[in-house]
Every structure is written in structure tokens, then in C-alpha cells.
Amino acid sequence: SYYEILDVPRSASADDIKKAYRRKALQWHPDKNPDNKEFAEKKFKEVAEAYEVLSDKHKREIYDR
């Protein structure tokens, strides 16, 4: 789930989600993982997609249904 990707509970606040996104984006940024760039790019995209949905109140409500 998007919550698992960002490592936050379903009850996470918008601020918690933003902090988790920043932490995970740094962790999986391809430039930070030169030895495993392809895998890092995949993870980085997953993190971005999760944040896009969970950071938008309307999209998150739909996702949580």
C-alpha cells in the first residue's frame, strides 16, 4: 500500500506524510544509489506516486475507500 511505501500508519497526518516522503525520497534518490540506480529509480517513483495520492486530501479519501 502507499502507506507501507512511505512507512506511515493510515492515521498519519499530512505533516507526517510530508516528512516520510522527504525521508524516503532522499533514501531512494537515484543519485544517492549509484550502484543500484535502476532499482532506486523504481523505488523513487513508487515513493513519489504514494506521496502524490496521500498528500492530496481528495485523492487520499478515494484511496482509503
Rank of each mutant, 00 (worst) to 15 (best):
V8D: 00
P34T: 10
P9E: 08
Y63A: 02
K19Q: 14
F39R: 06
I62R: 09
H58V: 14
Y21C: 05
A20E: 02
I5N: 03
A12I: 02
K32Y: 14
A40D: 03
L6I: 03
P34Q: 13
K19N: 14
K43S: 05
N33G: 04
K18I: 14
D7L: 03
R23P: 02
L26T: 09
K32P: 03
K57F: 11
D56K: 04
K18Y: 15
D31W: 05
R23G: 06
Y21W: 09
K32W: 10
L54H: 00
I17K: 02
I17F: 04
I5D: 03
R65N: 14
D31N: 09
E46Q: 12
E38G: 08
Q27E: 13
S13H: 06
K19Y: 08
D15A: 13
F39S: 06
F39L: 13
K43H: 07
R23S: 13
K59D: 04
K19H: 12
I5H: 04
K18H: 15
K45Y: 08
E41G: 08
D16A: 09
V8S: 02
S1G: 13
I17E: 00
E4T: 10
K32I: 09
A25S: 14
I62M: 13
Y3L: 01
H58T: 15
K24G: 05
R60S: 02
R10K: 12
K24L: 15
A14L: 15
D7W: 04
R22K: 15
R22N: 15
H58P: 04
D56S: 06
D7Q: 10
N36Y: 07
V8K: 01
D35L: 13
K19M: 13
D16G: 04
K19C: 12
Y63M: 02
Y63H: 04
R10T: 11
E61A: 13
A48Y: 12
P30D: 05
E46K: 07
K45P: 01
E52R: 11
Y2P: 04
E61M: 11
F44C: 07
A40S: 08
L54V: 02
L26V: 07
E41L: 14
K59Y: 05
H58Y: 14
N33R: 04
K57G: 09
S1D: 15
A50N: 01
Y2T: 01
L26R: 10
P30K: 06
D31F: 05
K59M: 10
E52G: 11
N36S: 08
K32D: 07
E38P: 09
Y63I: 03
K42F: 12
R65K: 14
D56N: 09
W28I: 03
Y2I: 03
Y3I: 00
K45N: 10
F44P: 01
I17V: 06
F44H: 06
I5K: 04
K32L: 15
E49W: 07
I17R: 00
K42P: 03
F39P: 03
A12D: 01
K18S: 11
S13R: 05
V47H: 01
P30E: 06
A48Q: 15
D31Y: 05
L54D: 00
Y3V: 00
A12F: 02
L26N: 11
R22M: 15
K57Q: 14
D64W: 01
Y63R: 02
A40Q: 06
I62Y: 08
R60W: 02
Q27M: 09
S55R: 11
W28M: 04
E41D: 10
E46W: 06
P30F: 04
N36W: 08
W28C: 04
F39Q: 09
D31T: 10
K37N: 06
N33L: 05
D35F: 14
S55A: 09
K37Y: 12
D35S: 12
A14P: 12
A40P: 02
V8L: 12
E4A: 12
V8F: 00
L6K: 00
N33D: 05
N36K: 08
D15N: 10
S55T: 06
A48R: 15
K42M: 11
A50R: 00
K59W: 06
K45G: 06
Y63N: 02
Q27R: 09
H58M: 12
K43A: 07
K18W: 13
R22W: 15
S1F: 09
I5R: 05
D35N: 12
V53I: 13
Y2L: 12
S55P: 00
V47S: 04
A20F: 01
L6E: 00
A12Q: 00
I62K: 09
K43P: 01
K18N: 14
E46L: 12
V47K: 00
K19P: 01
K37H: 08
K37I: 12
I5W: 11
Y21T: 02
E49V: 11
N36V: 06
K43L: 07
K59A: 11
R22S: 11
W28Y: 12
K18P: 00
R60T: 02
I17N: 00
V8C: 08
L26H: 09
F39K: 07
D16K: 05
A14K: 08
K37T: 11
S55M: 07
E41W: 12
D35H: 13
E49G: 05
Y2C: 05
H29Q: 10
K37P: 12
D7C: 13
D56A: 03
Y51P: 01
R65Y: 08
N36I: 11
D7S: 11
L54A: 00
D15L: 11
K24M: 14
E49D: 10
E46P: 02
S13G: 07
R65M: 14
D16L: 07
I5V: 12
H29F: 06
S11R: 07
R60D: 02
D64F: 02
I62W: 09
S1W: 11
D56M: 03
S13D: 07
F44M: 15
L54C: 01
D7R: 04
I62C: 12
R65I: 11
I62A: 14
Q27A: 07
D16Q: 11
R10G: 05
E41K: 12
E52M: 12
I5E: 03
K37A: 11
A20K: 02
K32F: 14
E52V: 06
E49R: 08
H29K: 07
D16H: 06
E61F: 08
E61I: 08
D16T: 09
V8H: 00
R65T: 10
H58I: 15
N36T: 08
I17T: 00
E52T: 08
R23W: 08
K19R: 14
R60Q: 03
D56H: 06
A14Q: 14
E38W: 10
K32T: 13
I62L: 13
A25G: 05
F39M: 11
Y21M: 05
R60G: 03
E46H: 06
K43N: 06
D64H: 03
S1I: 06
N33V: 05
E41S: 13
K57D: 12
D31H: 07
I17M: 04
Y3F: 03
K43F: 07
K45L: 12
P34Y: 08
N36G: 06
A12T: 02
H58E: 13
D31E: 12
P9V: 07
K18L: 15
L54K: 00
